[in-house]
Amino acid sequence: MTVSVAVPTTMAKRVTQNERIKMSARGVKVSYGENEALHGIDLDIVENEVIAFIGPSGCGKSTFLRCLNRMNDTITGCRVEGEVTLDNDDIYDASLDVVLLRARVGIVFQKPNPFPKSIYENVAYGPRLHGLAKRRAELDDIVESSLIRAGLWNEVKDRLDQPGTGLSGGQQQRLCIARTIAVSPEVILMDEPCSALDPIATGKIEQLIDELSENYTIAMVTHNMQQAARVAHKTAFFHLGEVVEVGETDDIFTNPREQRTHDYITGRFG
């Protein structure tokens, strides 16, 4: 079965040798009260790769993403079953420190949400909270390196004391990414990180995702299939609370195995 759909060349062409599973989900079910939103998800996330979760609205992709750092714990009436591991450790183990988990598995949300603090304090907040810097000079280095890695340093280095909320939308999102990587996470979750941004800002975020994947494992939800094709090494297609198909991004978009995947990416529903 061949799909005739125009797909841009992906940035993420790197071939990974000896793939190492960073996170793994087995039989993951999520229920909100009596409503089961996820029906037993099995999925592996490979270290230092970008995996995109695509699918129509309400299919469960954001719900699953939130399982990966236990953000669903904050939702009243939400129940998670199954197993999710990080480096083979069960992240739902009762003895696990959720604050430390969220430092290892950071998240960037759909709408930029800088703290009502200065640019400097936005980035310094996490390292200060987790005791990652003993002296101000060490904290300064973390802030600078995080802003550099987020591609924002040259734009803000002369106004670090100004409010982060005064930046443009795209700059705010890169500030949120800098804030996330300041605590040296191993995995970065992104929930439609470009949906509120203009095309120029989106391009900068996509380039940043490609660069960050050299050092971080990234799982992102996107409603934009062209974006998934550009930045993701692997793509998982969600539909009605299930993972229909997961594989190399080029394969998913040019030669999917499942009819539902074919129908979605060719616009027959969604």
Rank of each mutant, 00 (worst) to 15 (best):
I75Y: 11
R149V: 04
V7L: 08
I177T: 00
G241E: 07
G126H: 03
K13I: 13
I51Y: 01
I21A: 04
Y92C: 03
N113E: 13
P8Q: 11
A124W: 01
Y120L: 09
E144P: 01
G106R: 09
G60T: 04
N255M: 14
T266D: 02
Q227P: 00
L167S: 11
I205V: 13
L189N: 08
I188Y: 08
I218S: 05
H130R: 04
Q226C: 12
L152N: 00
T217K: 09
Y92G: 10
S24D: 02
H223R: 11
L132M: 15
K117S: 12
C78I: 09
R104E: 15
Q227A: 02
P256T: 00
S24K: 13
F109T: 04
L101W: 02
N215I: 09
T217L: 10
L212Y: 00
E47Y: 11
F115A: 08
T222H: 03
K111F: 15
T74N: 13
A219I: 03
M220Q: 00
E258I: 07
D73T: 07
I209D: 13
S184G: 06
R20P: 10
L152C: 10
R79F: 12
V243D: 05
V246L: 10
P193H: 02
Y92N: 09
G55L: 11
F269D: 01
I142Y: 02
G40N: 00
G169Q: 07
N154E: 15
V231H: 02
L38K: 04
V7Y: 03
A103S: 15
G33S: 05
D97K: 03
D89F: 14
Q173E: 08
R128C: 07
G126E: 02
M11F: 15
T217G: 06
D87T: 09
H223F: 09
T2Y: 12
Q162H: 14
L65P: 00
L100M: 15
A196T: 02
G27V: 04
D89Q: 15
A37M: 11
P127D: 09
I51F: 05
H262F: 14
Y125I: 12
N35I: 14
P256W: 11
A150L: 01
D263T: 13
V244D: 07
R260Q: 13
Q259E: 15
D161C: 07
A12Y: 08
K111Y: 12
R135E: 14
T16M: 15
P199W: 07
E34H: 15
R149P: 14
I205C: 05
G169R: 08
R14L: 13
G27Q: 09
Q226Y: 13
N18Q: 13
G40R: 06
I107S: 02
R135L: 12
R26T: 13
C194A: 13
P163Y: 06
S195T: 06
S62I: 06
R70F: 06
K22V: 11
G166S: 15
F109H: 05
R268S: 11
T180H: 05
L96H: 08
L101G: 03
A25W: 06
G131R: 05
E155A: 07
E83D: 09
D191Y: 07
R257G: 14
L139C: 10
L147S: 00
F238V: 11
D250E: 14
L160E: 11
P163F: 11
V243E: 08
G77M: 08
I177N: 01
A229L: 00
